[in-house]
Design a protein around this nucleic acid. Structure first.
Lengths: 219, 219
DNA sequence: TATTTTTTTTAGATTTGTCTAAAAATAAAT
DNA sequence: ATTTATTTTTAGACAAATCTAAAAAAAATA
């Protein structure tokens, strides 16, 4: 079975909104899709007959197994294309979203698998979000080394690479601790030092050694 | 201004059909687009108001300057994507057409230019057709029809005249593909069939129809 | 609990692209 | 030059996805 671009966009929107538990409301969906509640109601009735979701009048909506499968396939394509745009075509990580919104609706299964193989089966997209594999499975978002954090991505310090007093002394001096939120503003290839910015502070640079000793979680 | 996928397909179809001179007829277009003449008439009226073509009742249609520009932009995208699919993703040259039909409607200008640069500004697609540059200019096709190849001149298959599965089936059976090197050994005026010789194989004859569907480059 | 407010659904209209059937124009043939 | 055949256009209808306005249901509040 094949679906229109509009239908796919509804499925994707529901997927993103139902991440908590509880049902997704008509109004939430209308806001997300920049359309009107009446249009959403019509589409939900249609997608229900296609068995992509469970929906009862006034009760909101949740994806069925089939619906989730479709959503994951779309998310997979979106994130693979984003990876391609940044990694292969040298787009900035902040300018790929709209293009990927279009590319995610290209239907060829073979294209997706060949693209995935060409890119080396990446597990995370340029924003740090996990890419579902061909069965819909995603890697757990684990912490990454600060040295690998992409520029301008807000992250939270979640671990350190050693307990040495020397390291802790340095961290104390720079007012960095577990839970500190920061962004990488620049990376200097000369000595692999990086410039970071902590809220309400001026940006400052830290050495490669220090960056490698810090682990962060994207927030 | 931006155009729907349907509108773009009409423009592309007219471009391909008007290659000779003379106007393109409603019925020709209906056949090419697998739709009905009545639908074509409706769309032509619409595209005329958008100034993409000149159209008078019962007189057929031709693209305007704007229309040609749009057609060339679509053809450029189609052929660049075909090149990408074959060259980068290792698709077979005979399985890329449908995928490229979808990809050609992705709108991002930046994507096209980045893709073109990544591929090394290719001049011809995997079927031997020239790829328009960003200004719409194409390299002269230095390939000739196999039927016109002089006897005993070594040449290399560089393109096919159609994408039909019937042709592809025949070529597969005869082990002829893009890049196959061959020579014409004899031409028979009775039925215009020609005898060709591929290295390490016995010579065999092919029909006029097949020869006309093959383009070669002298090597 | 009764009433007001918010959310959601229905009803009916609109747009895009399509279709069939019938009418009009053009081209071909006697 | 008529008649016949073909091509093209009009007229009216339909499906997809949307909208506005009004009605119905659910939630919030007094």
């Amino acid at each position: 079975m094949s679906f229109s671009v509009t239908e796919e966009n509804y499925i994707k929107a529901i997927y993103h909104l139902q991440s908590g538990e509880g049902n997704v409301s008509t109004n939430e969906l209308a806001a997300e899709l920049k359309t009107k509640a009446a249009s959403v109601t019509d589409m939900l009735k249609k997608l229900k007959t296609k068995k992509l979701l469970s929906y009862e009048k006034y009760k909101g909506v949740r994806l069925s197994g089939e619906g989730k499968k479709l959503a994951l396939a779309i998310v997979r394509k979106h994130r693979l294309w984003e990876f391609f745009l940044v990694d292969t075509l040298q787009f900035g990580w902040d300018e790929v979203h709209e293009v990927a919104e279009e590319l995610e609706h290209i239907s060829s299964k073979k294209l997706v698998e060949k693209l995935d193989a060409f890119l080396g089966h990446p597990k995370f997209d340029p924003h740090g979000d996990p890419i579902p594999d061909s069965h819909g499975k995603m890697a757990i978002q684990q912490q990454i080394n600060l040295i690998d954090l992409m520029i301008n991505k807000m992250a939270e310090v979640s671990g350190v690479g050693s307990q040495s007093t020397e390291l802790l002394e340095l961290l104390k001096h720079k007012h960095i601790g577990i839970g500190t939120r920061l962004e990488v503003k620049k990376k200097f290839s000369f000595d692999h030092s990086i410039e970071i910015k902590i809220k309400n502070q001026n940006a400052f640079t830290i050495s490669q050694q220090l960056a490698q000793a810090l682990f962060v979680k994207i927030v």
